[in-house]
Amino acid sequence: MITTVASGKGGTGKTTVAVSLALSLAESASPANPLFLDCDVEEPNAALFLRPTIQERREVGQMIPEVDLEKCTYCGRCAEVCQYHAIAVVGEKVLVFPELCHGCGSCSLNCPTGAIHEVLDVIGTIERGWAGSVEFAQGTMNVGEPMAVPIIRQLKQWTIPLNPGNRPVILDASPGTACPVVESMRGADFVLMVTEPTPFGLHDLLLAVEGARDELGLLVGVVINREGVGDQGVDDYCATEDIPILMRIPLDRRIAEAYSDGGTLVEALPEYREQFKNLYVAIGRLVAGRKGGGAQ
């Protein structure tokens, strides 16, 4: 079962919840060793808490055009078909702008003289290994690169089995609701939204639900973190929208302090382990419910 942990607003506790969920499930290795993917490739920080041993590393990127000037006739067809202005023909020169290229391959497909082949432009790395009995993987975007989506896509392809079955697969997404978040949600069985009960938390939760439930058609549920700050807005919204609130984590300075030093919630307060296991069971029921007949 694939669960993506998202939030809309940053800093609401996505990584805290995702890591604690993985550690709680790993304890009994039930139903199987969890697989954890840090998909926040701009700021990957789950490794700071899980402290994995990395066993394999790959450079990733996208294919960008390289022009064979022997074959090129400077006809300009490549620049004409490129929707991103990533290739330009100026006199007897062909300029490629890798940071604008989406790696679609259209230029090479359309080149009438076969002068364009594609080479890998490295924009980040993907890594995998183990943190105790949690299988761990993360992507890291190189500083100065703009595009996170290709890294997330390749991280998922590399690590998520085609049919994960009962194995818990947990994806930690980046904040926001734009394309990297959508890529982290795509293919998930469930999106767990971690929010804080404040106007900012609610505002961004709304947008994230719009993306996950309304655009992608995925099941969603909410974890309210730092309960006790803020107001009733998130509760009211979830009631109106019929979104289940699956767990509540009270505001507790001990959690914040443990976090600040790289400690996890379930290490600081072990009594939460049971709650996270129950959370996973609740998600499982909702997913089974939809598969069993409630499919939309």
Binding site: G10, G144, M147, S174, G176
Partner: peptide
């Protein structure tokens, strides 16, 4: 947040960037 395309776009042409960090 982050370091990707919206951050690069937001930073372009700025005279100063004020980074808000938390001690974690």
């Amino acid at each position: 947040p982050g370091i990707g395309c919206p951050v690069i776009s937001a930073s372009a042409g700025m005279d100063l960037a004020l980074h808000i960090a938390e001690p974690t």
